[in-house]
Amino acid sequence: MSRFMHIGRGLYGIWLREVMRAVRDRGQLIGGVSRPLIWLLILGIGLNPYFRGEVYGEVRFVIPYTYLQFLFPAVIVLNIMYTSIQFAVSVIWDREFGFLRAILISPVPRWIILLGKILGGSTVATGHGALVLILARFADITLSWDQVALALLLMFGLSFGLTSFGVILAARVRSFEGFGVFSNTIILPLYFCSSSIFPLDPSLTRAQTVALYPEWLVFLVEINPITYAVDALRGVLINFHQFDPRLGPMVIGGMTVVFFLSALFDFRRR
């Protein structure tokens, strides 16, 4: 068998293990369902009356969509963030129970092992993001197959970057308990500071925006890479951008490359 076949089979085996483990884990799947239900159904419906129109010409929420539609792409990103970053638990698990040591002494190159694990994690995270698409009907969003395909591509890019980020975190955390706290302190601030649940009105100038929100908050939103991932998905799913449409794919692409190379650097040092 050629060397490429060996490498390909190794990559496939590691990817399949991650995917099978995730789809058999009912707890993880329930998490993938409960998050969109809580954020879209409970929060979206709960806040809907506060953002609905009461007088023609007066709205508190000057975007050409309903609050549910605005929230929908952000909930996809939230689901991907949780699944991708929590994937690092699998790395810690493999390290604790010796599986990682077993495959590291196999003839498969280290970078293939890492790539297989990250591809597996990315596939699962993309799947969790895609589950939210089922709720598009609820949010009154009509999707064409083109939109779904483009959204899945962006979701996979984001999942790949964030899963790599999860692996970087796993290299720095030694216990499961520590990782749980660590991941929540990263995921939730990133999510809330990504213009996910409140809009920065694109029709306003920067001066007007900082008159509406404190400058430090606008600054946090603007430097947060997740902001641009949410914006890219909004562009695809509801055709609404708050920032330059080119920034989203560029930031997702940049995250993918930078985080994977960093994860590879960490993985090789071990």
């Binding site: 799947l29 239900l37 589950l131 089922i134």
Partner: peptide, 19 residues
Amino acid sequence: INIIAVAGLLYLATFLPPD
């Protein structure tokens, strides 16, 4: 089976009236 179950659950949720 797990994936079909969760997808079905989400699909059923879309029939809830949002307002």
